[in-house]
């Protein structure tokens, strides 16, 4: 037994010198800090459940989101309450359509708008801002003045005009929101880049002859990704809000498709007729998602920037 142990120790000692030791990256440290933040973890769990709801909801729903239940149509207030028995888990809407299926569909659209809007913002905004900030001088001036000009356009007005002119479509909303969302991101990223580009490791990269664009991608972007991620998680609810507002105005997604904003609009319209569930279910999902994103964003900021608490 003893000899056996000794050989193990010897093996360990031999291997100590040869086996590469896995390093602890700053990302891993941040993840560890994040996992200890209870509010942020709860937010993450809620978000996961909502995504799950949007993903597997269509298979659970007893009705299709565009089908009208003719037997209940017209008396939503008296017979359309949420019930397991007739398959309308969340009740029916004013036209007699299943609210559960419609909430699932609305969640899909809203989450999609939020994430795609944020993704466009992250990709375009990061590359644009990092390029402007790193190269500086005239390039910076031209690029950032362009952003200023684009920002001075009242974007809600622009989006509404777009939808009125080309007709309501979800694609147009993606394009409109994406075109606007990256502006703020570009500004934030440029500011961060200005502070990063004077660091000595950038100088070291220049001194060893690394190409400028590679410096941006390898040295600048990874070091500002923390800020970008935090801002992106706060951008998602903003995108969802924008889409909801447009839908609330009646300009968003096309019927029979829907989104949280459109559902809330419908629910708010029939609030006085005793069908409060038509408002409460979509509103609950909407608020839960927004709060979760805010908590997650907050947690990420604390985790990625421990000095800044």
């Amino acid at each position: 037994m003893l000899t056996h142990k000794k050989t193990n120790v010897e093996k360990l000692a031999e291997n100590l010198g040869n086996e590469p030791i896995a390093g602890r990256s700053l990302w891993r440290d941040a993840m560890h800090r994040f996992s200890r933040n209870k509010a942020a973890m709860a937010g993450l769990v809620v978000l996961g459940l909502i995504v799950l709801f949007a993903a597997i909801g269509p298979f659970v729903a007893a009705w299709h989101y565009s089908d009208i239940d003719w037997s209940l149509m017209g008396n939503a207030a008296s017979a359309g309450q949420p019930s397991i028995a007739n398959g309308h888990y969340f009740g029916i809407d004013d036209l007699g359509r299943d609210l559960f299926a419609r909430t699932v569909q609305g969640s899909q659209i809203s989450l999609l708008v939020g994430t795609i809007g944020a993704l466009i913002a992250v990709v375009i905004g990061t590359l644009y801002g990092a390029t402007a900030g790193y190269f500086g001088g005239r390039v910076d001036s031209i690029m950032m003045r362009t952003v200023d000009i684009l920002m001075s356009i009242p974007y809600m007005f622009f989006l509404i005009l777009l939808l009125v002119m080309f007709g309501r479509s979800i694609l147009l909303i993606f394009i409109g929101i994406g075109a606007i969302s990256w502006l703020e991101m570009a500004r934030i990223v440029r500011g961060q880049t200005l502070s990063i580009k004077n660091k000595e490791y950038i100088e070291a990269a220049i001194a060893s002859g690394v190409r400028p664009f590679k410096i941006v991608l390898r040295h600048v972007v990874p070091n500002l990704l923390g800020v970008v991620i935090v801002y992106a998680t706060l951008l998602v609810p903003q995108m969802i809000l924008t889409e909801s507002f447009i839908s609330f105005l009646g300009l968003g997604v096309q019927e029979p498709q829907t989104s949280w904003g459109a559902l809330i609009n419908d629910g708010a319209g029939t609030m006085r007729y005793g069908t409060l569930w038509q408002l409460m279910f979509p509103l609950g999902f909407f608020i839960a998602t927004l709060l979760s994103f805010f908590f997650v964003g907050d947690g990420l900021r604390d985790a990625l920037d421990p000095k800044d608490r």
Partner: peptide
């Protein structure tokens, strides 16, 4: 460089 830690990119091994 002068500052040993600052001259190494913290995100790279």
């Amino acid at each position: 460089f002068q500052d040993p830690l600052a001259s190494l990119n913290p995100r790279m091994t």
